[in-house]
Design a protein around this nucleic acid. Structure first.
Lengths: 234, 234
DNA sequence: TTCATAGTTCGATGCTAACCGAAGCATTTC
DNA sequence: GAAATGCTTCGGTTAGCATCGAACTATGAA
């Protein structure tokens, strides 16, 4: 009967709303303290403490004590990937979100999806790279030699990225757009570069990525969509 | 707070042991009746009925009435992929399975992972294709032109596969081997061909794939590992 | 019609776990 | 030292839900 690993155990861990909120909050890639997570989940410290203990014991979180603070983060990229996959299924099949607030609009525009850029801006980046022949999409994205030049020119150290265990390019299905965007270590590096250039900054209390007016223009120039390239843009 | 889709809702659906067992049973890709699933989960029909209703309502299952039977299947490949991802996380981080029985040994050797071949045989197939230059692994598998010839020779209609929406090649992390094997429509087609050739058959009540003695030999000949290729095999 | 099988609905029961108040540690600051 | 802050443990309450027996509907067979 029970063929394979015990998926119910860890699904149940994610299945509680308070814990799910904590996990989603950690998808930004930042480590948060227990108190911050308690606030994020809308429960008291005591309750949060037990939840966090269970999540850690269950292998979903990693914790690091620092003074009297306890910082928590997702245990691995696998966990982040699992949460993204869950979001995809939850958004696709199943109830649509009940209400679309202004918060959601910003979230759809640009957000962090476990350290890389997602939302409309994320898919635009992906499409732009593909349309200009920098990214070759077969059964999974791959950087062309022209693309390698482009990335270096944009200030990304590809050799350093290749050191890591994580794949350079990976695509990730967007729950809001239902289209692909770029994940993997390159995806992360691109977001980091965009931040470093001052084009955008991470809103501290959520996963929303806020582009400045100039930043958005610079972004559109660097990563034009197929249409803008063809027509000369506005 | 609640950024994005409601992942807790569907995680909670998977989080119940009875429901999880049902879902895992459906990972074979076959559609099963309500009674079969009740037996699989070890609960009575009444209990199973409510579970199945919830899973369907939650968008995880698809049902088709046929006479007085009700056949249930996973709603989409996405759901299958989600379950497999869950298995990966559950097997990796977290408790190891309590006991490894003979059932598990067979399961580790060769099993169905949502319609494609997984386990030792699955990773062997993957490694073999890669070692012989049929599969190019960059950031995701891709069939080389030599590989295309090989597949046609093996009796696989690539053009037909390309018609579908699903990607041709995709890699899938194996929970038992912690290594990759081949998913995607090509992965499915390969399993189908292996079955059609009589090399193996699906054990009706589980996800185990049973190779015959001759079938295993033929498989090893067609998909030799790097070592066997180099040394001339046994 | 009568019987059998597949599946659903209802009501009652019992267990699990989420939750918070209060008290208890540990670490930092004054 | 004492006070403050971050986090944990304990105990008791409450709510949700998985479970099954029993009764009910629907399809198919004799």
């Amino acid at each position: 009967m029970k063929d394979g690993p015990d998926i119910a155990r860890i699904a149940a861990l994610i299945g509680d709303p308070a814990r799910a909120n904590m996990l989603v909050a950690l998808m930004s890639g930042r480590a948060l303290t227990a108190t911050e997570l308690a606030h994020e989940a809308g429960v008291t410290q005591q309750t949060a403490s037990t939840h966090l203990a269970r999540l850690t014991e269950g292998g979903l979180l990693r914790q690091a004590k620092q003074g009297r603070h306890k910082y928590l983060a997702l245990a691995s990229d696998d966990v982040g990937h699992l949460l993204e996959t869950l979001m995809g299924v939850a958004a696709g099949s199943g109830h649509l979100r009940s209400r679309i607030g202004p918060r959601d609009a910003a979230l759809r525009k640009a957000r962090i999806c476990y350290r890389h850029l997602a939302g409309e801006m994320g898919t635009q980046l992906y499409d732009s790279l593909q349309a200009r022949g920098f990214l070759d999409i077969g059964d999974g994205p791959r950087l062309t030699s022209a693309g390698q030049g482009f990335m270096r020119d944009f200030g990304i150290d590809l050799d350093a990225l290749r050191q890591g265990r994580a794949p350079l390019c990976r695509d990730c299905l967007d729950w809001s757009e239902r289209r692909k965007h770029l994940a993997g270590s390159l995806g992360r590096a691109l977001l980091g570069r965009i931040e470093a250039l001052g084009w955008a900054r991470l809103r501290p209390d959520s996963r929303i990525v806020e582009f400045s007016r100039d930043g958005e223009r610079a972004f559109a120039e660097r990563f034009p969509t197929a249409l803008e390239t063809a027509s000369g843009s506005d």
